[in-house]
């Protein structure tokens, strides 16, 4: 099966400096000032999978209220993707980082 194409679209020219981040290891160009959510959903179709049923989720409210958009950073910290800005060098994970046991 072909991987699903991201649907979120940037519609205004980005004059901002670009920020290079990784998403599950893929190197992705984003822009300073962008939310992590935009950077991820312009690259792939999901932010995370739900703990209970494993279904894909991509956030919902886009304003910090529903908490459906939490992702991981490689250092183990969790961030709310819709209200956190990308930072050059950020390593974003759409699932929990592998623990020391299976590292």
């Amino acid at each position: 099966m072909m991987p699903a194409k991201p649907r979120l679209v940037r519609v205004l020219d980005r004059t901002a400096a670009s920020a290079t981040i990784t998403i599950d290891g893929d190197v992705v160009q984003a822009f300073a000032g962008e939310s992590v959510l935009v950077a991820v959903l312009a690259h792939t179709t999901r932010l995370r999978t739900h703990e209970v049923d494993g279904a894909p989720r991509a956030g919902f409210c886009l304003m910090g209220a529903c908490q459906d958009c939490w992702v991981w950073l490689a250092d183990g910290h969790r961030i709310r993707a819709c209200t956190t800005r990308v930072v050059d060098g950020m390593a974003v994970l759409t699932g929990p980082p592998a623990g020391p046991a299976d590292a």
Partner: peptide, 25 residues
């Protein structure tokens, strides 16, 4: 309504104003 691609109405507007992005085409 939990599928990716479904967003709140206010969120759709917020994404545009805050990020210059659309929830879809």
């Amino acid at each position: 309504w939990t599928l990716p691609g479904v967003f709140s109405l206010g969120g759709a507007q917020t994404l545009l104003k805050d990020q210059g992005a659309l929830i879809g085409r």
